[in-house]
C-alpha cells in the first residue's frame, strides 16, 4: 500500500517535472523547425506552443499572420499547417512522429533553421532588429572569452542593448536551451563555417554540457559580454 503511494508520488513528481520543462517548447514532428524559424521572427514560440486548435482555426491563424506580414511559399504554408494541426490540434498527436529522416544525423545547417527567422538564412541579420552573425561571429571567436560567450548567448539568450558593427540592437534574444548539446555544438560550428580564426577547434557537445550548467539569464549573458568588452 505504502509502496503504491510512493510510486504514484514519484510518478507524479516526474510528470510535473516533465511538464515544467516542456511548457514553452514545440512537440517533435516534421515541420517543427520551419514553425520555429517562421514564427519566432515576430514573437516568442510560447504563443504557438500553448494553443490547441482545429486545422480550420489554425488555417485562420496563419491567414491572420500573413495579413501581418508573414511570407510563406505554398509548400511552407502546407507544411506548417500540417504540423500545427497534427501536433497542436484538438486530438493528441501520434505517439511516434512519422519522420523517416529522423534517423539521419542532423547538420548544423538544419539546426540553424531555428535562427534564420531572425538572423537570416545567410546570417546577414535584419538591422535594426536583429544583428548579423556573419562577420560578427568571427570577430567574437577571435576575442578573448568570445568562444564561451557565443555558446552562452545561444543557450541562455541575451537581453539588453548591444552594439554590433556600429548598429545598436535592443531586442531580447530567447535562449535555445531546448536544443540538445549536440545540436548547439552543430549550430555553433555552422556559424564558424562562415568565418573563424586560424586554428579554430570545433565546439563539442561536452563543452556545451559544461556551459549549460551555468544556468544564466539573458541579462547575465549581457553582463558577461560587457565584462569581456566583446566587439
Amino acid at each position: 500500500m505504502k509502496k503504491t503511494l510512493y510510486l504514484s508520488l514519484a510518478g507524479l513528481l516526474g510528470v510535473l517535472g516533465y511538464l515544467a520543462l516542456g511548457q514553452a517548447t514545440l512537440p517533435e514532428g516534421p515541420g517543427k523547425e520551419l514553425v520555429l524559424a517562421k514564427c519566432q521572427s515576430c514573437h516568442e514560440i510560447g504563443f504557438v506552443a500553448r494553443e490547441r486548435l482545429s486545422r480550420d482555426r489554425w488555417d485562420g491563424v496563419i491567414e491572420e499572420m500573413e495579413l501581418r506580414g508573414l511570407k510563406l511559399t505554398q509548400e511552407e504554408r502546407a507544411a506548417i499547417l500540417d504540423y500545427l494541426a497534427t501536433y497542436l490540434g484538438l486530438t493528441p498527436p501520434p505517439e511516434i512522429p512519422p519522420a523517416p529522416v529522423a534517423q539521419t544525423p542532423k547538420t548544423g545547417a538544419q539546426v540553424y533553421a531555428a535562427c534564420s527567422g531572425c538572423h537570416g538564412p545567410q546570417g546577414d541579420g535584419n538591422p535594426p532588429n536583429f544583428p548579423p552573425l556573419k562577420g560578427h561571429v568571427e570577430a567574437l571567436l577571435k576575442a578573448q572569452g568570445g568562444r564561451e560567450y557565443l555558446a552562452l548567448a545561444v543557450l541562455f539568450g541575451l537581453g539588453g542593448k548591444i552594439t554590433v558593427l556600429g548598429q545598436t540592437y535592443e531586442n531580447l534574444m530567447p535562449g535555445f536551451a531546448w536544443l540538445s548539446d549536440e545540436e548547439i555544438a552543430l549550430v555553433l560550428n555552422h556559424l564558424a563555417s562562415w568565418g573563424a580564426p586560424e586554428g579554430f577547434t570545433p565546439y563539442t557537445p561536452e563543452e556545451i554540457r559544461a556551459l549549460r550548467a551555468k544556468a544564466l539569464t539573458p541579462e547575465k549573458v549581457l553582463e558577461a559580454r560587457k565584462a569581456l568588452n566583446l566587439p
Partner: peptide, 17 residues
C-alpha cells in the same frame, strides 16, 4: 529524480521565462 527535475525546471529554464 522527479523532485530534482521539478526544482531544476524553473532554474535551468529561467532564461525562457
Amino acid at each position: 529524480m522527479g523532485a530534482t527535475l521539478l526544482a531544476a525546471g524553473p532554474r535551468v529554464f529561467a532564461q525562457q521565462t
